[in-house]
Nucleic acid binder design. Structure first.
Length: 584
RNA sequence: GGGGCGGUAGCUCAAUGGACAGAGCAUCGGUCUUCGAAACCGAGGGUUGCGGGUUCGAGCCCCGCCCGCCCCGCCA
């Protein structure tokens, strides 16, 4: 057995191959190899338990027979049978060293990881704000989680297409255009256009609510826009361009760059085909003046309609999303389409995917794997959705600015001797990274409480704690005058001996397990948990064992531990979308 | 009314049907003449909402109940 990146899979294959020689055959023995609790070893195989039960055999005796067939593994692992019949595998110190030598660079890690998603073309639909409005805290999670998922999939070998499905064709434009033509403040427009658009939208909205005549006029503006009236179309374009430029400032801070920006307007002239096809294949029918799809086999959707054309004849987001699936399948040849969208829209996606599945089947098309990657709400410390004291949505640019400002104050307090420009740069990385990491480190499906003090803190599972570990490693290499990626000082290393060395080396070799879990479930928090534990093991090691010592072979092996910890922390943080630093 | 998600330590959260349910915060107590103490080490703290069931094994799966949040026809 070679020391492959993915030791779980390698062990699993070994056991499956050895099983017939131990008499484990029908019906289908599966080794069930998985990472183990460190008190038991590195990996455990649980498969003999179920097999022994099915065949009324003694599981411990069966495990023993199987282990006897694993002679090839004994130079690499300590193998033990425990409890009712678990087989435990513990990497030997020399094996740990060999694995770490074989995975010394980012390229080596990427080469190992790339098998998992090879051959997949994944469109990821995330961020997707509405134009003419500023991005607010409600847009945070989709952007942050979506970007992390893109990076995880890319690293795992997928071709990823980042698609920002912006809401650039909504009903908001009627009211906005109405107000623009009557209440525009040119000075405000010049100063901060998006602010002014937002004010105008609110003006129009209030006016329309107060006066049905205004509502009618606003609807007329929308009709004119949709009929491609030159004046309204030019205004619409200006509003969108302004919005997208403002969005990009946020995306730049979050490290996001989209491959496609195909908003609702792009699909505007593609919806007629949807109506035609869905009616032709008998899926859609008229109900209360609207065109809808029911799913008779479904307990709820047999009565809860999926509306694809409103009674006024206009398309809505359902139509749009159907057209988008078709485009992604035909144009991007997507094997997978993922939607990073608020969990409150799960009914919509259930109906969308059901409808698309039947439609594609009836029209003999290949349906990509469609998945709604839901996420919970960002709550304030009162347990309610996070808002300003006056009940407004918190703007994302203000939220990020506050994170940077708080980090600046902290860096200045902890490290006042650094030049101000350095402290500013560090605060930018720590502040934005703290917001990203707080969002990612928790299971995306749950709501989470937004708490500044915990987020920026150096204590606990935070970005600052991880970045601090990275900075300390860089500091070691600076002090020794060694470039951090250099392999030469690692030569002559002898296998690990101290408890702290062994614990850290062991943790390092489990990076693939964490990555696999995060990618398979598309939940970045598994990677966060791992990185936090890794940083913790490093801190323990750093505290217990001195690196810069005279004994060359010991120093070499400790430098390997430092360098690999740095490599994995940096790689992991980048996969999450964070930027890196070397001092803080 | 129908449905979705959740309820785990005082608080915020982890835990792929596997071994004794783990972290952080907070509390209490230790560690800087030594590579960055923004750190480390240790202690206490649990009937996993309640009741049944399936399983060699359940926080996780099934059934019932209680509580909370969210969704349920033309917003997205």
């Amino acid at each position: 057995m070679d020391l492959s990146f993915d030791l779980v899979t390698a062990l699993d294959r070994m056991l499956a191959g050895a099983a017939p020689h131990a008499g484990l055959v029908e019906p289908g023995f599966t080794p069930e190899v998985r990472p183990a609790d460190p008190v038991h070893g590195d990996f455990q195989a649980n498969g003999v338990l179920a097999y022994a039960k099915r065949h009324r055999q003694n599981p411990r005796a069966l495990a023993d027979t199987l282990v006897r067939q694993l002679g090839e593994l004994t130079p690499l692992f300590d193998i033990a049978i425990a409890g009712p019949g678990f087989i435990n595998f513990k990497l030997k110190p020399a094996t740990l060293l060999a694995w770490l030598k074989a995975h010394a660079t980012r390229d080596a890690l990427a080469a190992g990881a790339a098998a998992a998603e090879h051959g997949h073309t994944v469109v990821v639909d995330y961020s997707s704000p509405n134009t003419a409005k500023q991005m607010h805290v409600g847009h945070l999670r989709s952007a942050v989680i979506g970007e992390a998922i893109c990076r995880l999939l890319e690293f795992s070998g997928a071709k990823v297409i980042r698609d920002n499905h912006v809401g650039d064709w909504g009903t908001q434009f009627g009211k906005l255009l109405w107000a623009y033509k009557r209440h525009l403040d040119p000075a405000a427009l010049a100063r901060d256009p998006l602010e002014e658009f937002e004010r105008l939208y609110k003006t129009g909205n209030h006016a329309a609510e107060a006066d049905p005549a205004v509502l009618k006029e606003a609807q007329q503006e929308l009709v004119k826009l949709q009929a491609h009236d030159p004046e309204n179309l030019a205004l619409w374009k200006k509003i969108n361009d302004t919005s997208l430029a403002a969005f990009q400032q946020i995306y730049d801070q979050l490290g996001i760059r989209f491959d496609a920006m195909l908003g609702e307007s792009f699909y505007n002239d593609r919806v007629d085909q949807i109506y035609r096809e869905l009616m032709a294949c008998g899926l859609a029918g008229e109900s209360q003046g609207a065109l809808v799809v029911f799913h008779p086999e479904h307990p709820r959707f047999k009565t809860q309609p999926f509306i694809i054309r409103k009674s006024d004849g206009a398309a809505n987001y359902a139509t749009n999303d159907l057209a988008t699936i078709l485009y992604r399948a035909e144009h991007f040849h997507a094997t997978d389409a993922l939607y990073v969208v608020d969990k409150r829209q799960s009914d919509h996606f259930d109906q969308l995917f059901l409808t698309a599945g039947k439609w594609f089947e009836k029209t003999d098309r290949a349906l990509p794997r469609l998945e709604h990657l839901d996420f919970g709400t960002v709550l304030g410390e009162n347990g309610k959705p996070l808002q300003t004291r006056s009940g407004e949505n918190i703007r994302l640019k203000d939220l990020l600015a506050e994170a940077v400002e708080r980090s600046y104050r902290l860096v200045s307090e902890k490290n006042p001797e650094l030049p101000d420009s350095d402290r500013r740069a560090i605060a930018q990385i720590v502040g934005v990274g703290s917001v990203q990491y707080a969002d990612l480190s928790q299971n995306r499906s749950s709501d989470y409480v937004f708490a500044w003090d915990k987020m920026i803190s150096l204590d606990g599972n935070t970005a600052a704690y991880l970045l601090y570990a990275v900075a300390r490693i860089h500091s070691i290499f600076r002090k020794l005058g060694l470039p951090p990626g250099d392999a030469a000082p690692e030569a002559g290393a002898i296998p690990f001996e101290t408890p702290a060395e062994l614990a850290l080396a062991r943790k390092l070799t489990h990076f693939p397990d964490a990555l696999d879990l995060a990618v398979q479930q598309l939940r970045p928090h598994f990677l966060c948990t791992y990185l936090y534990e890794l940083a913790g093991e490093f801190s323990t090691f750093y505290n217990a064992d001195k690196v810069a010592l005279e004994d060359a072979p010991v120093r070499a092996r400790r430098l390997i531990l430092c360098n690999r910890t740095r490599l994995l922390l940096e790689t992991g943080l980048q996969l999450l979308g964070l930027r890196l630093l070397t001092k803080m």
